[in-house]
Simulated scan of single mutants.
Amino acid sequence: MDSSLPVTTAPVLPPLDLDVALLTAELLDIHSVSDHETLLADAVEEALRALPALSVQRIGDAVVARTEFGLDSRVVLAGHLDTVPLPTVPGARGTVPSRWEPATGVGTVAAVPADGDVLYGRGATDMKGGVAVQLALAGLLGRDAGPRPARDVTWVFYDHEEVEAARSGLGRIARQAPALLEADFAVLLEPTDGVVEGGCNGTSRYLVTVPGVAAHTGRSWRGVNAIHASAPLLTVLAAYEPATVMVEGLDYREGLNAVRIHGGTAGNVVPDSCAVEVNYRFAPDKTVEQAHEHVYAVLARAGISPEAVEVTDASPAARPGLDHPAAAAFVAAVGGVPMPKYGWTDVARFSELGVPAVNFGPGDALLAHADDEHVTAGAVRACLGALRRWLVPESDGR
């Protein structure tokens, strides 16, 4: 099949008691690049509605399922359905459909892969491995005569995480049905290599416009080259030394980078405008407003005034909150030493809603969006086991 094209037939997920590694592969095979999540959302909704112990609601391409056991506390398990676009590099392995490769590099993968066997495909780490874990837990707790968890659970599967924040399906739920997100604690199953990652950096984006004067390149002295005039800005950004900021015992690394540049209209015209896109990743000791002030101060070193800067996107950071009793209990249950989350994740949205949240999921975050994006069968199974032990304490996690 042509992996660059979306699937157009309605997919059906297998029973959710399927081995979670195989379930991950099934999810990878459903194309769900941002703006194309509907078919996957349909499949997830159908699978969840078949579970008698769950109530299910659909809001756009976001699906929410809940147990209603009347327990003393409630937790949210959240994950996004969309992926970034497919690789365009010839021979890239992180495509659709997925493919298994044996851990040894030789032979073939058995019908049930070994823990070390590797699953390649777009979204393997970010974050269909985590979504498979969510679904497996829903299949366990939502079935007839399933085990009773220690706390009620809300599952949130949402669209448009990989694009601008205003389009987020989680944000849509927060606006249209905020009661669905009420909880004592939340776990976002973003890839963390099976380690709890507290909080997250914030992110803000800016468009810096540098003016010039157009002229024919044969008489370039009559113009002012806007691309050349952007050199002081690029020099300042190249020399910028990002900070490492400790927040509640975790070290968050910041970053300020030019990420895109636009300028020029023709091969024989001195450009009269140059636009530089800038991204700032800031530690959770700062608000969005403080992040803006910091960026303006850095840009001022290049002679850039705030009037020349347009804020195009901004999402707040989230403090770790690992001292919260629910977070501390979760860390104790799943083990390991907590780490900071350097990227932005939707724990920040839960933090704004007053719900303490952490990141915990299968796969190496450094492989997210990579041309060889992959996850091991063992990593997905281990994450499922840890969450099962936490939710159903008498369980052995298998």
Rank of each mutant, 00 (worst) to 15 (best):
H324F: 03
K286W: 01
T287S: 15
H262E: 15
Q290F: 01
V331A: 10
A258P: 08
D323F: 11
G336K: 10
H324Q: 05
P284E: 06
Y280E: 05
Y280Q: 04
P340W: 05
P316K: 10
G255T: 07
V270G: 03
R260S: 10
R319L: 13
R253K: 12
V298L: 10
D272S: 13
K286E: 08
D251G: 00
R253S: 13
T287G: 10
G255V: 02
D313K: 13
E289F: 02
Y280G: 00
H292F: 01
C274M: 07
I261P: 01
K341V: 11
I304F: 04
D272E: 15
Y252D: 09
S273L: 12
A258V: 14
A317D: 02
A314G: 06
P284Y: 06
V276M: 13
H292D: 11
A291V: 10
P316H: 05
V270T: 12
A333E: 07
P316R: 07
A308P: 02
A275Y: 00
A291I: 03
E277D: 11
L322A: 03
N257D: 13
D285Y: 03
H294L: 13
A326V: 01
T265F: 08
E254R: 07
A314P: 08
V278C: 10
V270S: 03
P325R: 14
V278P: 07
P316Y: 02
V298C: 05
V270E: 03
A329D: 15
V337E: 14
H262I: 06
V270Q: 03
R253W: 02
V288T: 15
K286V: 06
F282T: 07
G335W: 04
A328C: 05
E307P: 05
I304M: 09
D313L: 14
F282M: 05
A266V: 02
S305Y: 01
E277P: 00
V278K: 04
R260P: 05
E289G: 08
E310V: 14
A291W: 01
V270D: 00
A327Q: 05
Y252C: 11
E289C: 01
P340I: 06
Q290D: 12
D251R: 12
K286A: 10
Y342R: 15
A266F: 03
L299E: 00
G267T: 09
R253D: 09
D313Y: 14
P306Y: 12
G267Y: 03
H292G: 02
E310P: 02
P340K: 06
L256Y: 00
H292A: 01
A258F: 07
T312H: 03
V298M: 09
Y280I: 02
N279C: 15
D272C: 09
A333S: 12
G303R: 14
V270I: 09
E293Q: 10
G264E: 01
K341G: 00
A317E: 01
V331T: 14
T265Q: 14
P271I: 11
E293F: 00
G336Q: 07
T312S: 14
H294E: 12
Q290E: 15
V278G: 04
H262D: 12
H294M: 10
H262P: 00
D313I: 04
D323E: 15
V334C: 04
A328D: 07
